[in-house]
Design a protein around this nucleic acid. Structure first.
Lengths: 139, 139
DNA sequence: TTCCGGATGTGATAACATAACAAAATGCAA
DNA sequence: TTGCATTTTGTTATGTTATCACATCCGGAA
């Protein structure tokens, strides 16, 4: 999914849910979406910084936290990086396939996946499911 | 699984596979195993430090890297922490259930789990599967 | 207008991790 | 057993990731 579509989807999602997509947050989302790969927080920071010299780490981490809560961005835990969610609001049961050759991330919406052998009575609140390997183009 | 059993299992595994469990590595494994919860690298460092004032970050990170490669320890990606693997050598397809109330981690050995909707021709090298929630005792 | 709450600015620092090179220990062949 | 290669550990420094605490700004309700 490309950046303009993601942004449009995000706008729609936010106005529907009453979530405030401020200019700063929108800018961060745009940078994440345009990247087409997992982006580091400090890379975002330096990009913001070109327009807004006052940007500091909390600026970008706060925006990212907001976008993650809103289901617009995922955190890639094993990379300490962030990707835009192609489907606003479906962000909480995502499975990520991350190609280590081309860095492309494919997101799959799974219905509570990966719990085949869940211990009895364990209640899952949040799942981190990241598969690393090679995509079809990079075999 | 308790710490002595994990260590014993690790010893057996290492002598069988020719892997060198040096005193330092054994000490780190012991500390991770005794914790019964995910441990931070710098916490390990300060514990080592009491016996060995020369311990520095690379000391513990190197030992952890070794133990992870040997399948004796898992890294919990979303916590930046480490847990002992209860079954030496089966370390590479683990699914972790992490209770956010009591911090207890239950490990399940799954046969390449969580890939229900894998994109065509994606080759998975490594998977990170971490479920956060509440265990049976902490509902 | 005044107050309030959410958002952002700002400086400092905490927490996590690795690079690069030195020294010591270990295993092994001659 | 000596010498050499390899692995492991020590050491200094620094890079990277993330948060805290407090100040300021800004829009809307009273």
């Amino acid at each position: 999914m490309n950046a303009p579509d993601i942004l449009e989807d995000a706008e729609r999602h936010c106005s529907k849910t009453g979530v405030r997509l401020t200019p700063l947050r929108r800018r961060v989302l745009e940078l994440v979406a345009r990247a087409n790969a997992p982006v580091k927080a400090y890379d975002l920071l330096s990009q913001i910084d070109r327009a807004n010299a006052s940007a500091k780490p909390p600026t970008v981490y706060r925006a990212l936290d907001f976008l993650i809560d809103a289901g617009l961005v995922h955190r890639v835990e094993a990379l300490n990086a962030f990707v835009a969610c192609p489907q606003a609001g479906h962000g909480h049961a995502a499975v990520l396939y991350i190609c280590e050759a081309c860095t492309k991330v494919t997101e799959v919406q799974g219905a509570r996946p990966g719990q085949e052998h869940k211990p009895r009575s364990f209640t899952v609140k949040r799942s981190v499911i990241e598969h690393y390997g090679r995509c079809a183009n990079c075999q």
